[in-house]
Design a protein around this nucleic acid. Structure first.
Lengths: 260, 260
DNA sequence: GTCATTTCTTGACGGATCGTCAAAGAACGC
DNA sequence: GCGTTCTTTGACGATCCGTCAAGAAATGAC
C-alpha cells in the first residue's frame, strides 16, 4: 500500500499500473491481487486509510476545550492540516467516485470505506448536537442539526474539489483557504450559532487551537494562511462593521420586492 | 457526440469505449479520432457543451426581475432544473478532474472548456456586484464579493459531489436538495445580504421565479422539492423564529470563552 | 469520359495494461 | 523422506486505446 501510495502521488491514477507496483514491491502481481481485488480496490484501501486518519484529526479537533463553535473551527483547521499532510487524499477519493467503480471493489472494503467515512463525520455531528443542547444553536422546528452539518460539509467538499482543479476566473488570484474560513463563519453566523463571529475573537481561538491541539502539526500551515482577517490585526474588525444590523433589518422588505 | 453522450449515460465512463461509439455511429473509429483527440477529449467536448447549457440557465435565472438576492435564489433553482435535465453532466466533469487527464485533451478544447466555465459563472458574479453597488450587500474592507461567490459556489459543487455518491450516515434519509436551499439562505443571511430570509417571502419568490423564468422547465422539479420550509406553509416561519437576535447577540461572548 | 491528385474513410494492427490461472515452489505434517 | 497443503509466480488471454498504411471517394484538369 505504501508503494502504491507513492506511485499514485508520483504518476497519478492513470499513470500508475499494477505491474509497476508488483515490481517495486518484492512480490509478484499475482500476490498483489491476492490482497486487492482490482486496481480500484487498492485505491479504495489507500483512501479508507486516509479517511481514518482524517477522522482522527477531526476527533482531536473536537476535543479542544472551548465553545462548540470554536471546536467546529478547530475541525476546519484540522482539515487544513490534514490536506497539507496528505495531499493525495482527495485525488484517491475522487477516483472512487467515478461511475461504476464501486462495483469493482470488494464488498468488505466497501463497508470499511463507508463506515470510515461515517465515523469521520460523527464527532462533528456530536459537536453540533452539543451546541443545540447547550443553547448555542437553536434549530427551528421541523429542521435538524444535520442541515447545519450539511452546510459545513458541502462547503468543505466543494472547496477541496475546486482547489484540485485548474483555477478559473474570477478565482485566479484568490486565497481560497481564507475564503473558506470566512464562509464557515458567515454560514454559522447565518445559523445564529453562538458566539457569533463578532462576539468572540476567533483569531485568538485559532491560535489557541493550533498551540493546544496541533502543536506538532501547525508548522505545515505556516505561510499558507495567516489566520487573520485581511486588513485587520485582531477581532476588532468583526465587532466593528460586520455584526447583524437588526435595527435596520426589519425595515427593508416586501415593499421593494417588485422592482422594475 | 450525442451517441457518446447516450453511451456515457448508459454504461458510464469506464463502460463505454471508442469502438462502440464508432459502431453506433455510421463512421469508423479513425473518423471519430479525426474529431476528438482521445476518449477524454470526447468527454471534454460533451462536458463543455453541458457547461454552456448550464451557463444559459444561469443567464436566464439572473434575468429575473427582482432583488439581487432573489436572483441568486433563481440561480439555485436553475441549477436544480439543470441537473434534472442533464443528469450526466457532473459525471462527465468528474472524469475530467482525474489527475493528468487535461494533458490528454487538445489545447483548443481545453480553452473552450475553461472559458465556458468562466462564462457560466460570470452572470452570478455580476448579480453579487450589483448587490454591492445597490447596498444590499456590504463587503467589509479588505474583502471582495468574490468571497461570497465562492461560498455559494463551493456549496453547490460540494452538494453535487455528495449527491452523486452513495449516501452515508447521517445523511441517509435527508432531503439534500432542501438542505442546500436552506444553507444558501443561511450563508447569505450570514453575509447580511438584504433582504434577509425573514424580511422577504422567498417561497413566494420561488413560485414567481418558476412561473416567470422557467415555465417550461419547472415540471422537472415536481415532487422533488416542494419549495416550502419543512413544517411551514409560507414565509411565516422565517419571520417568526429565525431572525437575527441582535439584542442578545452582544451579551454572550468572551466571558464564556474559557470553559472547563 | 478519363485520368491524376487530393481528401476522406477504414479497420487491422501495435502497444499497454488489467486480471487469471496452471504450474512451480515452499512449508508443513507424519 | 515423502505426500499434502498453502503460497507465489509470471506468462497468458482479453480488452481497449490510438495509429496509419491502404483503399475509396471526391475533385479537377483536359
Amino acid at each position: 500500500m505504501s508503494i502504491a501510495r507513492r506511485l499514485f502521488m508520483e504518476r497519478g491514477y492513470l499513470g500508475m499500473n499494477m505491474d509497476q507496483i508488483a515490481e517495486a514491491s518484492e512480490y509478484s502481481k499475482g500476490t498483489v491481487y491476492g490482497h486487492f481485488a482490482s486496481k480500484e480496490d487498492l485505491v479504495a484501501a489507500i483512501c479508507t486509510d486516509n479517511i481514518r486518519t482524517r477522522g482522527d484529526y477531526f476527533q482531536r479537533a473536537t476535543s479542544f476545550s472551548g465553545r462548540p463553535r470554536e471546536r467546529l473551527m478547530a475541525v476546519g483547521i484540522s482539515d487544513q492540516i490534514f490536506v497539507r499532510k496528505h495531499p493525495d487524499h482527495f485525488a484517491t477519493e475522487h477516483v472512487l467516485n467515478i461511475g461504476s467503480v464501486y462495483d469493482r471493489i470488494s464488498e468488505q472494503r466497501q463497508n470499511a470505506f463507508f463506515s470510515a467515512k461515517s465515523a469521520a463525520i460523527s464527532p462533528i455531528q456530536a459537536v453540533i448536537e452539543e451546541a443545540v443542547s447547550r443553547g448555542d444553536l437553536i434549530m427551528p422546528e421541523g429542521q435538524d442539526s444535520c442541515q447545519t452539518m450539511y452546510g459545513l460539509w458541502t462547503q468543505s467538499v466543494g472547496h477541496h474539489a475546486v482547489v484540485a482543479q485548474p483555477k478559473v476566473p474570477p478565482f485566479e488570484q484568490a486565497d481560497l483557504d481564507t475564503y473558506l474560513w470566512y464562509n464557515y463563519q458567515r454560514l454559522l453566523d447565518g445559523y445564529l450559532f453562538r458566539p457569533l463571529s463578532h462576539e468572540l475573537d476567533y483569531n485568538e481561538s485559532r491560535r489557541r487551537i493550533l498551540d493546544e491541539v496541533f502543536p506538532e502539526e501547525q508548522h505545515v500551515l505556516s505561510g499558507v494562511w495567516a489566520g487573520e482577517w485581511p486588513g485587520t490585526t485582531s477581532g476588532e474588525h468583526q465587532s466593528g462593521e460586520n455584526r447583524p444590523a437588526a435595527n435596520q433589518s426589519r425595515e427593508a422588505g416586501h415593499e421593494e420586492h417588485h422592482r422594475s
